[in-house]
Design a protein around this nucleic acid. Structure first.
Length: 201
DNA sequence: CCACGGATTGGCT
DNA sequence: GCCAATCCGTGGA
């Protein structure tokens, strides 16, 4: 049914901000244990350790962030605040500590599983439907993304991204990033205008 | 070894 | 709107 192809390595090895914008509207897919999840990427943020103090790679290569220094097309998953996982798409060529944080998805497939992963029960109200994947921690919770997905190859069969037509430039909003204390003025957050699954306006 | 704080979330004031 | 929860990577002693 879906004739769109898995994004190839060359999509990811391009420059950080180009990949960040181009990821909007694409479909993130995860297939594991017979469960398939899919969601449209509606909100992202870019991080670059070379010039961006908020990036985990700003301090140089460590055990935690090494995958961000590899070539594009791998998954960087980290754990934060003692409670949440967040997932990123590594971009650029080998040696550049750059990645795009997936901040929000619009659920497409596997929605019942997402609901159970997030709440462990059925939806209480309409509002919860839009809270399902509207935030980086929520995305990982809904899709059951954790430490085991660190460094996953996005050109493989477990986690990958399907191509889609580009989002019109007039439908993309650019803003400051959320929840950081350093390099706060970079306009490196991008989201799809008026999409109800975006974490915050 | 120990202290610090974070690319968040959800619950309470 | 404010803030505690809660783990662990990182850096300094």
């Amino acid at each position: 049914m879906n004739s769109f192809k898995k994004l190839p390595r060359e999509f990811y090895t391009r420059e950080l901000l180009i990949v960040a914008v181009d990821l909007l509207g694409k479909i993130l897919v995860k297939e594991e244990d017979g469960i398939k999840y899919a969601g449209k990427i509606v909100e992202v943020e870019a991080y670059d350790g070379n010039i961006d103090e908020a990036a985990h790679t700003f301090i140089g290569k460590t055990k935690r962030n090494y995958i961000m220094f590899g070539e594009g097309g791998y998954f960087y998953v980290y754990f934060t605040y003692g409670a949440h996982f967040c997932c990123n798409v590594v971009t650029g060529v080998e040696g550049h500590g750059t990645a795009v944080l997936i901040r929000a998805l619009e659920p497409v497939e596997g929605i019942e599983h997402m609901i159970q992963n997030r709440f462990g029960r059925d939806l209480k109200n309409e509002k919860e439907k839009y809270n399902l994947t509207s935030g980086p921690g929520r995305v990982c919770s809904a899709l059951n993304i954790n430490r085991s997905h660190y460094a996953e190859d996005l050109t493989g069969d477990k986690i990958y991204i399907l191509d889609q037509p580009p989002v019109s430039k007039s439908d993309i909003v650019r803003s400051k990033r959320i929840g950081i204390k350093k390099s706060v003025d970079l306009l490196w957050r991008f989201y799809i205008k008026d999409n109800p699954y975006v974490s915050k306006k």
